[in-house]
Amino acid sequence: MKNKMNDTQPIQTDLNEQAPSANRRKNTKWQIIALVALGLVLILVSAWFTWLKPFLQKPISDPLVLPSVSTDAIPTATEMATEEPTLTPTLPEATATATPAPVCGDAASWTFLLAGIDYRGNDYLYGLADVIRLARVDFTTMTINMVALPRDMVVNAPDGLFKEENPIKINQGYLLGSPGWTGSTESGSGANSLAQVIQYNFGVTPDHYAVVNFNAVVNFIDGIGGVEVDLPESVYDPDPSLGFFPSGIQTLDGERALDLMRIRTNYSDDFRVGNQSLIMKAIIEKFLQPENIVKFPDLVSEFYGAFLSDLSIEQISTLGVCFLQNFDLDNYNSTQIPEEMLLKDFEYIPSNFGSSFVYRWDQTVVDWIHQNLLSQ
Rank of each mutant, 00 (worst) to 15 (best):
L149Y: 03
I117F: 07
L260F: 01
Y124D: 04
G226F: 00
F303T: 08
E228Y: 08
S184R: 00
T28D: 11
A157H: 02
T8C: 07
Y174Q: 11
T8R: 13
E17N: 06
K29I: 06
T111F: 00
I224S: 07
N219L: 08
A94W: 02
P238I: 01
P338N: 08
S241M: 14
T185C: 02
P179V: 06
C104A: 04
I33A: 14
Y359W: 12
S234Y: 03
Q250D: 10
S351M: 04
T71S: 01
S70H: 07
Q18M: 09
V65E: 09
V45S: 14
L258D: 11
Q12Y: 05
E291Q: 09
F112A: 08
V41N: 14
P63S: 03
P100C: 12
N145F: 09
E291T: 15
T90E: 14
F271P: 11
N292M: 06
D222M: 09
S178D: 15
T82S: 04
D345Q: 02
R360W: 10
G180K: 01
F271A: 15
L288N: 11
E84N: 07
S312C: 03
R24G: 07
P59L: 02
T97F: 09
P20A: 05
Y267I: 12
I168F: 13
P290G: 02
K286F: 04
L52S: 13
I11R: 12
G243F: 01
L161M: 10
G305R: 14
V294D: 15
N156K: 10
D72M: 07
N333V: 08
L161N: 03
S68W: 06
P54Q: 02
T185R: 04
Y236A: 09
S21T: 06
L194I: 08
P338G: 08
G248K: 13
I117V: 07
F353K: 10
T182V: 12
E165K: 08
L44F: 15
V137T: 01
E228Q: 05
G203F: 00
G254W: 02
A37E: 15
S68V: 11
N122K: 14
D239F: 00
Q12L: 12
T88H: 13
Q289A: 05
L56H: 05
Y174M: 14
T95E: 13
A107K: 09
L374A: 11
I60Y: 06
I74R: 03
Y124E: 01
A101V: 15
N333P: 00
F55I: 00
P92T: 10
G320H: 11
G173N: 04
V211T: 10
G121F: 00
D14G: 01
I33K: 07
D230H: 12
L114T: 01
Q336D: 11
V321G: 02
Y348N: 13
L242P: 12
N213Y: 13
P10M: 02
E291P: 00
M1I: 14
E93C: 09
